[in-house]
Amino acid sequence: MPKLSVIVPCYFNEDNIPVTVPELIKNEALFPAGVEFEYIFVDDGSQDQTLAALLHARNQYPDRIKVVELVGNVGSYNAIVAGMEQATGDCLAIITADMQDPPELMVKMYDYWTKGFKLVIGNRQDREETGLSKTLAQTFHWLMKHLALRNIPDGGFDFVFFDRQVRDDIVRMKERNSNIFYLMVWLGYEYVNIPYVRRKREIGKSRWTLQKKVKLLIDSLLSFSYFPIRAISVTGIVLGTIALLYGLYVIGLKILAPEGPEGWTALMVVVLFVSAFQMIALGVIGEYVWRGMDAARNRPLYVVKTVYPSEAGPKY
């Protein structure tokens, strides 16, 4: 029977761990007999008692749980890659530590995997959250679907089940400043998606700040779409055409009515508008340049401080 590695990135989840671990262990009973389980919890530089809670859980289930402690906070996507590199399973799953995604859905995902699908996506058909958070999430995924990857499912996703071959591809690429879940779709493997309603967070406070959401949007768009740079080109052409027409108008006005108004106000509006566009264009180009420089430096995505292996696994 195959081995399933479940990767759980953790950041300030000390209150979630005592609930999450028993839920995952209980979920094993829904799988066919003989499936082997491995849980890889990655502490992404938490400053609370998350690591202590993870080590306590490891002591309770020493044959299943592996804890990876990173030196500092590198973001959930890089933490997931760290978990992938430690995974030894034939298939893998990624789930959040706050249990907003239903672990029982993994059973159906596993069934699709046994039928030959390399990638199975749990996409959020709806979410129990309300207000600005829900609106921002819906806007983000709408932009990505219409400007970058048209073959991603509606509603967004970060709950996936995939084959070890997909894991090997992702780890080998070591993509930085990107979106690891969209990268799985970009690889081109045939996938199946399972819609579900994401639960409202019941324990703890989300650390997914507005700043991180904006960075993720920028990273995702620049990684999978040429839209920003092409938008600059199109806008430049439009502004150039307007400037040419306005220039012809000014010349004609000077010839036909030498004593006419000088048009200082209109000129200042044009100058300010074009200057603002130039600054925005430089900012977008700078984002691309910075990402190229970051890739050229080839610094590690993360630094592992300690790996606490499961007793059934290899020692580090």
Rank of each mutant, 00 (worst) to 15 (best):
256 L>S: 13
181 F>Q: 03
252 G>I: 02
245 L>M: 06
207 R>A: 13
188 G>C: 10
179 N>F: 05
196 Y>F: 15
251 I>F: 08
241 T>D: 00
225 S>N: 08
249 Y>V: 05
185 V>N: 08
204 G>K: 07
180 I>P: 02
239 L>T: 02
213 K>N: 08
182 Y>P: 00
182 Y>G: 11
213 K>Q: 15
250 V>I: 15
203 I>M: 01
191 Y>S: 10
224 F>H: 12
249 Y>T: 08
231 A>N: 12
179 N>R: 02
181 F>K: 00
231 A>Y: 10
181 F>T: 00
202 E>A: 12
225 S>L: 04
261 P>S: 09
225 S>Q: 01
181 F>P: 00
200 K>V: 03
243 A>C: 10
205 K>I: 12
221 L>C: 00
252 G>T: 09
241 T>S: 11
246 Y>V: 05
224 F>M: 05
229 I>F: 09
258 P>G: 05
240 G>I: 02
185 V>I: 15
240 G>S: 13
210 L>G: 00
253 L>Y: 06
237 I>D: 01
227 F>W: 13
215 K>A: 10
188 G>D: 09
195 P>Y: 07
191 Y>H: 15
184 M>V: 03
201 R>Y: 09
236 G>Y: 04
207 R>G: 02
250 V>H: 01
259 E>D: 14
211 Q>N: 13
200 K>T: 05
215 K>Q: 13
222 L>I: 11
179 N>C: 12
199 R>V: 02
196 Y>G: 03
223 S>R: 04
256 L>D: 03
216 L>Y: 02
218 I>E: 10
230 R>W: 08
240 G>C: 02
206 S>N: 10
191 Y>T: 06
211 Q>M: 04
185 V>P: 02
260 G>H: 04
196 Y>T: 02
231 A>M: 14
228 P>L: 06
205 K>M: 01
210 L>I: 13
190 E>T: 13
257 A>P: 00
182 Y>A: 03
203 I>L: 12
193 N>C: 06
230 R>Y: 11
196 Y>E: 04
182 Y>E: 08
236 G>Q: 11
189 Y>H: 14
